[in-house]
C-alpha cells in the first residue's frame, strides 16, 4: 500500500512538471529573454501588463519586436519570437498557425467585443501552460477588467518609426 501511495505521489509530482516542450521554448526563455512580437502599433494597458506578467513568470527580460504580421508569424513558427500580442481577438485567423493562450480581458473590433488573447508557437505545451498561469494571475484579471479600451503609447516610439517589413527590436 505504501508503495502505491508513494508511486501516486511521485506520479503527481512528475505530472506537475509536465507537459514538456518539443522544441524547448521554456528552457530558452527561462531566466533569459522573452521575445514579444507586437501586432499593433500601440500596445494597450492590458497587453502591456500581460507581457510583464509572462516575463515575470519566466524570470526573463522582455524584448519587444515590431514587424509586419506575416513576418512575426514566420518568426513565431521558427521559434525566434516567443509571444505574439497586441489586441488579438479570440477569433483571429492567425490561430490556425499558432496556439492561443487563455483570454485576458476583451478587445473591441468595430461594434463587436471579443475575448483578448495572445499567441504562442504551436505544440509548445509546457510554455503555453506557464503563459496561461501568468495570464491568470489576479493582477492581470483585475487590470483586464478595468482597462476598458484605453490604450497606451507603445513603450518605445522609435519602434513605430521602423518600416513594417523589417523586424525591429525594442527594449
Amino acid at each position: 500500500m505504501r508503495k502505491v501511495v508513494a508511486l501516486l505521489v511521485f506520479g503527481l509530482l512528475a505530472a506537475c512538471q509536465l507537459p514538456l516542450d518539443p522544441e524547448g521554448t521554456t528552457d530558452r526563455v527561462q531566466g533569459a529573454e522573452l521575445v514579444v512580437g507586437l501586432l499593433t502599433a500601440r500596445l494597450g494597458e492590458t497587453d502591456r501588463a500581460a507581457v510583464a506578467a509572462v516575463a515575470q513568470e519566466f524570470d526573463a527580460s522582455p524584448r519587444l519586436m515590431n514587424a509586419a504580421p506575416d513576418v512575426l508569424m514566420a518568426e513565431l513558427e521558427s521559434g525566434s519570437v516567443h509571444l505574439l500580442i497586441g489586441d488579438v481577438p479570440s477569433n483571429t485567423a492567425l490561430a490556425t498557425h499558432a496556439a492561443a493562450t487563455r483570454d485576458f480581458g476583451s478587445v473591441r473590433i468595430g461594434e463587436d467585443s471579443h475575448k483578448r488573447i495572445a499567441l504562442v508557437r504551436t505544440g509548445e505545451n509546457g510554455f503555453l501552460k506557464r503563459v496561461n498561469i501568468a495570464l491568470g494571475t489576479p493582477a492581470i484579471r483585475t487590470r483586464a477588467a478595468t482597462a476598458g479600451q484605453q490604450t497606451l503609447d507603445r513603450t518605445d516610439r522609435q519602434d513605430a518609426a521602423q518600416p513594417a517589413g523589417g523586424a525591429a527590436d525594442a527594449r
Binding site: 509536465l18 487563455r102 504551436t122 505544440g123 503555453l128 501552460k129 498561469i133
Partner: peptide
C-alpha cells in the same frame, strides 16, 4: 510535422493541463 497544441484551464485554483 504539425505539433499538437493542448492548452490548460484553471481548475480549483490550479492551472491544469487539458491532456490530463
Amino acid at each position: 510535422q504539425e505539433h499538437p497544441t493542448i492548452s490548460s484551464i484553471p481548475l480549483m485554483g490550479q492551472e491544469v493541463w487539458m491532456g490530463w
